[in-house]
């Protein structure tokens, strides 16, 4: 009855059929198997919502120019953030006592608007916006034009984890973009924001904040900073990542940093697992 699975040296096929899927032996057997990177030469970019797209032309056009300049040399998956409209809707929905699942759906819609806008700007270069579950056509689009745009919010909807406090979805667009990079075994994950990287506090409100050029997830969690530039859920996800063991946060408001990050340069903050 079993086909290829039962022929593996691990005997995984029969373990899977007879044991709990949480069984330690089953998990160990699955961990030992080799894995394949699905899109190994793709770089995932996350374009911030509040940090970039909400700023309009003066912030977005230079980033678009850098993306266009990178098209010949790099394959890109470009995810979008939510931003200030998501914050307004979250604030309203939370005030109404609505559950996290409803907020998650709202967040998706705003990230979708941003993907649509970026899509219009990149349309003349042939870069399409792909919808959820677009894996079927994604490789073709990336191979043909070198890039595709997607809304960064993960599709968890009413199945979104709830946070310990409040109702703001803990897995938002940073987590969504990271998971795309991790699942498809991509080459790098670059978060394009409006700061030079991670600071010891929010530099917008605390002038004494210091830039942290490089840090590990473990160190970062231990420092328990009051505010961090990427979603905390990304740090949790990174601890178990198989492919994307580091992420870089770069300042999209400063020219050429994105291009240099694509080339593998350290130009912002690198957080590694």
């Amino acid at each position: 009855m079993m086909t290829s699975a039962s022929r593996t040296g691990t005997g995984l096929g029969s373990l899977l059929m007879s044991r709990s899927l949480d069984d330690a032996e089953v998990l160990a057997a699955t961990a030992a198997l080799p894995d394949e990177r699905v899109l190994p030469d793709v770089h995932v970019l996350k374009i911030g919502g509040q940090s970039l797209l909400d700023r309009g032309r003066s912030a977005v056009f230079p980033v678009v120019e850098e993306i266009v300049g990178a098209l010949g040399s790099y394959r890109l998956l470009i995810g979008t953030g939510g931003g200030t409209r998501a914050r307004h809707a979250y604030s309203l929905a939370a005030g109404l006592g609505l559950p996290t699942g409803v907020l998650s759906d709202i967040g998706s819609a705003v990230a979708g608007q941003n993907a649509t806008m970026l899509g219009h700007l990149l349309a003349k270069h042939g870069v399409p916006v792909v919808g959820g579950g677009a894996m079927a056509s994604l490789p073709l689009k990336v191979a043909e034009v070198g890039a595709a745009i997607f809304a960064g919010m993960p599709p968890y909807d009413m199945w979104q984890h709830v946070p310990d406090e409040g109702v703001i979805p803990p897995y938002r667009t940073d987590a969504g973009c990271f998971l795309v990079a991790e699942t498809y075994g991509c080459h790098s994950m670059i978060f394009v924001k409006d700061e030079d990287g991670l600071y010891t506090a929010n530099p917008k409100s605390d002038p004494s904040a210091q830039l942290i050029p490089e840090i590990t997830v473990r160190e970062l969690l231990a420092r328990d900073l009051p505010d961090v530039i990427v979603e905390r859920s990304v740090l949790d996800l990174m601890r178990h990542a198989r492919f994307v063991r580091s992420i870089q946060i770069v300042n999209g408001l400063r020219p050429s940093l994105l291009t240099r990050a694509l080339a593998g340069e350290h130009v912002g903050t690198i957080i590694s697992a």
Partner: peptide, 30 residues
């Protein structure tokens, strides 16, 4: 660089990562 244009809200201008601010938005969940 011009400031981001904001829709006024309690969470405006925030990273949604500041614990105190996120807490302030809390209400009993329906």
């Amino acid at each position: 660089v011009p400031d981001a244009s904001h829709v006024p809200s309690l969470l405006m201008r925030q990273t949604l990562l500041d614990r105190e601010l996120v807490k302030a938005a809390e209400q009993p969940v329906l």
